[in-house]
Design a protein around this nucleic acid. Structure first.
Ligand SMILES: [Mn+2]
Ligand SMILES: [Mn+2]
Ligand SMILES: [Mn+2]
Ligand SMILES: [Mn+2]
Lengths: 151, 151
DNA sequence: GCAGATTGTTAGCCTTGTCTAACATTTCGC
DNA sequence: GCGAAATGTTAGACAAGGCTAACAATCTGC
């Protein structure tokens, strides 16, 4: 029983230093705080590219939330310097917002291509990529990219 | 330029139905709402296994949060039927809590083994697994498992 | 160019998840 | 077995992110 490789793995994870583990959880919480901003700027960039402009109503439809939720979130993004916005007008990305959007789109595509190359169907791949993308380190992203290109 | 495979992928993701996309985001938000409960019950199960009991102070250390945060979270877990708890005593999992913990540990280990089998270092693998595990569908999990076993 | 439809905003409510400060209980060393 | 240390709880603050209801502005079709 103690030679079962599962036992070994389990024991190893049990024995990790509590501090190291706390750091991991803190990292996950930090990533979670950026998820919404990342998805918004990525979507805004995409709407600007495909529709010429980004309107709150289109963001609301695609995010699956109500209009007031979008309004409040956009106010936070403006406060954080990612977008500019004027009453009743469409949304613009700042330089910083464009940079983040580009990075997010890049990462999203790598994760998506990786999942597809593993053999996952397109719809599930899109759903999983939408969540996974925010929790992938640079190192993991590099491995995903290499794998997708190789196969 | 329009034959660039990246353009094609981008166009494809642009053209997905807004409703399908909204469903994906709603799914991600639902997953996010369960993350904390999943990490807590998984950790509680582990502490019970390795230390004989699960105490708030050990949870706080490993989660990297303060004791009052743990207390409030444990109250929510009790309310939701995942644990039982009495003042100043250690924490017990309910039947439902044990079932969830088992499922989470299983999923965590598959994601971890998968990342390791891709060639990731142990520490980064642990960190990324801690975030990714909550956003992996059954199908993706099956593919991860198969890949880790094959390689 | 106006009426109705669409879009956007504001106000206010709720839950979650984090914190600090203060206090209560339990445990440990001697 | 007592006092100090460790552990746990309670109260209360705050930000994020969701909602509904009500109202305001803009756009569109005739
Ligand atoms: Mn996403
Ligand atoms: Mn994305
Ligand atoms: Mn986790
Ligand atoms: Mn986990």
């Amino acid at each position: 029983m103690h030679d079962d490789p599962h036992e070994v793995l389990h024991a190893a994870s049990d024995d990790r230093s509590p501090d190291l583990r706390a750091e991991a959880f803190q990292g996950v919480r930090a990533a979670r705080r950026n998820e919404l901003a990342e998805d918004y700027v990525e979507l805004i960039a995409e709407l600007i590219h495909s529709h010429g402009e980004a309107r709150p109503v289109d963001i609301a439809t695609r995010m699956g939330v109500t209009a007031p939720t979008v309004a409040k979130t956009l106010d936070r993004l403006a406060r954080d310097g990612l977008i500019t916005r004027a009453k009743y007008r469409s949304i613009f990305l700042t330089e910083q917002g464009r940079a983040l959007a580009k990075e997010c789109r890049h990462r999203h595509e790598i994760v998506l291509r990786f999942l597809l190359s593993l053999g996952l169907d397109a719809e599930t791949a899109e759903r999983d990529a939408e969540g996974i993308e925010h929790h992938v380190s640079e190192r993991t992203l590099a491995l995903f990219s290499a794998f997708a290109n190789r196969s």
